[in-house]
Design a protein around this nucleic acid. Structure first.
Lengths: 235, 235
DNA sequence: GTCTATAGAGCGATAGAC
DNA sequence: GTCTATCGCTCTATAGAC
C-alpha cells in the first residue's frame, strides 16, 4: 500500500496504453480522442493497440475492468469498518464517507480516482448505452449494498425517498470530480473543489443533511404552472 | 407565452439546423456528431451549414446564444418575485426555485431546458476550454447575482462557505438533467429523476438543507489518511 | 510481438455552377 | 441561397513482413 507512484514511462506496452488512454479519454472524451493520438502520446505503435485490445471500444472496457474492482473493494472494506461509537461521527456520515472517499482519493495515485470518475461521467453523456451497460455491470451491486445500508440507518424513509437522496449523492460525486473548475471561476478562486480532501470534508456533511431532510411537502414550490404565482404586487 | 410547440419540420433552414444540432450534440456530444449527420437528420445540404454558420464551432456558439438569454431572463424574473410572506416557503427555498426551475422546465418546449443543460454538461467534459469560456460568458453574471441573494439570506456564512454550497446546487442541477437514467436502473424504476417536476420538488428542499447545513467540523471524517482509523476491532 | 503500409471510409471545409 | 463535386485530411482496422 505504500509503493511509490508509478510513472507511465515505467510501464509495459499494454499498461502504458491503458494509462495513456484513460487519461486522454477522461480529458477529451471517447470520440474526441483517436487511437492514433493515444499512440503518439504513449510512444506506442498503432498496431499494438489492436494487437493487445482488438478495438477502441474494448480498450475502453478494459480501463473499466482495471479500475472498478479495487474502488469497490475499498468501499466495501470501509463500509465494514463503520460502527456506532460515541467517539465517531454518526453512522450515516460514516457510510457516506465509506462510499465517497474511494471515488475521490486513490492510494498511491492521487489523480487516479478523479480521472476515472471523470471518464465515467463523460462517457455516460457521449455514448449513453455503452456507459449505462458498463456502469451497471461494475457498480450496481456495490451501489445497492450502500442503499441498503442507508435504508437501515434511515428507517423513517421509504426506499423511493432514499433513492431520491442517493441521486444527490451521485450528483455531488460526479459533478465535483468532473467540473471542479466552474466554481473556481465563479468564486474568483476563493473555493476550490479540485482539492479532494476539502471536497470530501464538505460532501459528507452536506449529503448527510440531504439524507436527513424531511420528505418534500406538497407546497414546497411556488412558481410552478400547477401552483401559479399570485400576481398581486407587494409594497 | 402560450404558442404551440414548434416542430423542427416547420422551421426555416438556419433554425432547423440549430434545433437538430442542439438535439444531436446533447445526445452524443460535440465530437460524436458530424456536420454530415446533422445534414442527414435535418434534410439540409452540407454547404448550408457553412453558409449560415461558417464552422462547426460557430454553430455550437449560436446554440448557446439562442438558449441562454431567455433562461437567464426567466431566472431573474422569478428572483424578483421572491419575497417574505407567511403564506410562502422561506426565502431560501424561493430563491433556489427561481434558479432551478428555468433550467429544468422550459415553457412550450418541455425538452428544451434539459437538452440544453445536457449539452452544456457534455461540452464541458469534451472541450473544457471552449465550454468554460462559453459558460462564463453566458452565466457568470446571473450565477453571481444568485450567490449574492443567497449570501443575503444566510448572513451566518462566509462567501466561501456559500460557494461550497453553490457547488452542490450546480451538481444537483447538472447530474439530474444529464444522468437521470442511472437511478432509474438502480431503483428498478421506483424513482425517476427524468420527471422534471418531481425532481424540482425534491431538489429545492434538498438544496435548502445543504445551504442550512453547518460548516463542516474538523472531525467530520474518520477514514482519512490524516485521521487514520483506530484499528482495534469491536465485538 | 512489433513494425510498415494501406485499405476503405468519413470528416470539415471550400469552389463554383445555377 | 442552394446545390454538386471535390480537396486534403484523419480515422479505425487489417494484412503481412520481420
Amino acid at each position: 500500500m505504500a509503493e511509490p507512484v508509478t510513472e507511465i514511462n515505467d510501464l509495459q506496452t499494454p499498461d502504458r496504453i491503458l494509462a495513456t488512454a484513460e487519461e486522454m479519454f477522461a480529458e477529451q472524451g471517447y470520440w474526441g480522442v483517436s487511437l492514433r493520438s493515444i499512440t503518439r502520446a504513449s510512444g506506442v505503435n498503432i498496431a499494438a493497440i489492436h494487437y493487445h485490445f482488438g478495438s477502441k471500444q474494448e480498450l475502453l472496457e478494459r480501463i473499466f475492468e482495471k479500475r472498478c474492482a479495487p474502488m469497490n473493494q475499498e468501499r466495501l472494506r470501509l463500509l465494514a469498518e463503520c460502527r456506532e461509537d460515541a467517539a465517531r461521527p454518526p453512522l450515516l456520515e460514516q457510510i457516506l464517507e465509506a462510499y465517497l472517499r474511494p471515488s475521490l482519493i486513490w492510494p498511491n495515485d492521487p489523480d487516479g480516482a478523479p480521472r476515472f470518475l471523470r471518464l465515467r461521467a463523460v462517457l455516460s453523456q457521449e455514448h449513453e448505452t455503452l456507459a449505462a451497460n458498463l456502469i451497471s455491470r461494475h457498480f450496481n451491486e456495490v451501489s445497492r449494498t450502500f442503499v441498503r445500508s442507508l435504508l437501515a440507518v434511515l428507517p423513517e424513509f421509504s426506499e423511493e425517498e432514499v433513492f431520491w437522496r442517493f441521486q444527490f449523492l451521485l450528483a455531488a460525486q460526479y459533478y465535483t470530480l468532473s467540473n471542479p473548475g466552474r466554481v473556481v471561476i465563479l468564486s474568483d478562486g476563493k473555493c476550490d473543489p479540485s482539492d479532494s480532501e476539502a471536497s470530501l470534508r464538505h460532501m459528507v456533511p452536506f449529503c448527510a443533511a440531504v439524507f436527513r431532510a424531511p420528505a418534500p411537502s406538497s407546497d414546497a414550490l411556488i412558481f410552478g404552472p400547477s401552483l401559479p404565482v399570485p400576481l398581486a404586487k407587494v409594497g
